[in-house]
Design a protein around this nucleic acid. Structure first.
Length: 404
RNA sequence: GUGACUGUAGCUCAACCUGGUUAGAGCGUCGCCCUGUGGAGGCGAAUGUUGCGGGUUCAACUCCCGUCAGUCACCCCA
């Protein structure tokens, strides 16, 4: 047997306890907020038939993680969550109750060349509503998203909103270039359009046209919804040059930006995609929603200092004074644990007390229980607060009432 | 997928350009001072197949090729 180098695959990551706890924190808030708006969790398989993804969107299928399974079927790892959800709509159309609201937080896989913030397995967070054609649905999804960023503690998140229908006279290739305006500037956009075969005069006029688009009734409905939901005016904005270069985008389109983190790139974006749903599900169901980058959101929250410190999940460490008192320490830790408090018992009676305290200190465990012969004789324990250094004596029968 | 840069101790880096005896430092880790009390301090200790494989050479961390991984740009981003 050869020795295997301990290493994750290119673009794949481990999440050690601290990071895993942060991710769990984010996931919990996202789910919780979704559920307060009536959105239900949905999960779909990691593996789908390759045909589900291939050819549905765009012609480029190079980035699929695909292979043949043991039965010779062509399969692919989940490439996004929108397409499987459209499949669900086709498959369970009779059992779903419309309007159908769902959120989904699952890993997605793309065989991209990894860079910072760009991995081959990453978590995607989608919020969508199906069965409502009115812009009020788009507005609701935007409101839920903004609510999430508010609850996470961001000072401000901004929804940049536009309506793809207002660009009906502009060809898709031009839209895809205009979408890069912020990144490459006006000249870059025109240059790119020309490279794609659009003549200069037309390219310039497309850009001008888009830059001068005025908000329509649809945008107004969305703004009214957001205003009534209590979001102040600096949380949403009409952005005529926002294009979202997805061929299937239609109707309202929007992106979410966190100004205090990164003014120029979004943490997520959404659109209406009725036609895509019909194509995949063969059902006429309206649908709109947003895809949010889970990793990017966590990164922003960390940068803005919003993530609590997850040094240790334990509130209390019960030390073991000696082998003779091992059973006493077991009993003490269990009686604290009964109160639904995270307690760890130091797992080795041979280790000196100072080492045990050092361990508590390093792991960031706030309270330490010390029970030596003197304490046990008197039916008490010493409770030490590692943060303040204070130490008090507690009667054993009162330990269950302690608050940590 | 295309192009560029990087890879030395757990971490951040030095030595590489101009090949030459035992590859260094800081931080961290561990031990002791401290046999019933952590954070500070003092003293001491351990650690590297120089990412991996091959080539050139009397001699390779150093030069060359390949490979793996990371980073950046492009591409892409449902």
């Amino acid at each position: 047997m050869s020795i295997i180098k301990p290493q994750t695959l290119k673009g794949f990551r481990d999440f050690l306890p601290k990071e895993a706890a942060q991710r769990q924190w984010l996931r919990n808030i996202m789910s919780k907020v979704c559920e307060t708006w009536g959105y239900e969790p949905l999960e779909t398989p990691t593996l789908e038939p390759l045909e589900l993804f291939a050819g549905q969107i765009g012609e480029d299928e190079k980035l699929f993680f695909k292979f043949k399974d043991q039965g010779g079927r062509d399969v692919a790892l989940r490439y996004d969550q929108t397409v499987p959800t459209c499949r669900v709509i086709g498959q369970y159309n009779n059992q779903l109750i419309y309007p159908f609201r769902r959120y989904q937080i699952q890993p997605t896989f793309r065989a991209e060349k990894p860079q910072k913030g760009r991995y081959r397995e990453f978590t995607q967070f989608d919020i969508d509503i199906f069965g409502v054609a009115s812009p009020s649905a788009d507005a609701e999804v935007i409101a839920v998203t903004l609510d999430i960023y508010k609850k996470l503690g961001f000072k401000r998140a901004v929804a940049l909103i536009n309506n793809r229908d207002l660009m009906k006279d502009v060809p898709y290739t031009a839209i895809a270039s205009i979408d890069k305006l912020k990144k490459i500037g006006e000249e870059g956009v025109i240059g790119e359009m020309m490279k794609k075969g659009i003549e200069k005069g037309k390219a310039v006029s497309y850009l001008k046209y888009v830059q001068n688009i005025q908000p329509d009734k649809t945008i107004q409905i969305i703004f009214d919804y957001l205003e009534s939901s209590g979001f102040s005016k600096d949380w949403y904005k009409f952005e005529p040059t926002l294009a979202r270069s997805f061929s299937y985008s239609q109707g309202p389109i929007w992106e979410i930006v966190i100004p205090e983190y990164d003014e120029n790139s979004s943490v997520g974006g959404g659109e209406r995609y009725d036609a895509l749903i019909e194509k995949i599900s063969r059902q006429k169901v309206a649908g709109t929603g947003i895809g949010i980058g889970f990793d990017r959101t966590l990164e922003s929250a960390l940068a803005c200092g919003l993530v609590p410190d997850f040094k240790s999940i334990s509130n209390v460490l019960v030390t073991v004074f000696s082998q003779e008192l091992w059973n006493e320490s077991i009993k003490i830790s269990n009686s604290i644990r009964r109160n639904n408090i995270s307690v760890e018992l130091y797992p080795d009676a041979q280790i000196r007390l100072d080492k045990q305290l050092k361990y508590a200190n390093k792991k960031g465990i706030r309270y330490v229980v010390i029970a030596g012969p003197e304490e046990i004789k008197l039916n008490v324990v010493k409770l030490k607060d590692m943060k303040t250094g204070e130490q008090k004596t507690v009667r054993l029968e009162n330990i269950i009432n302690l608050k940590f």
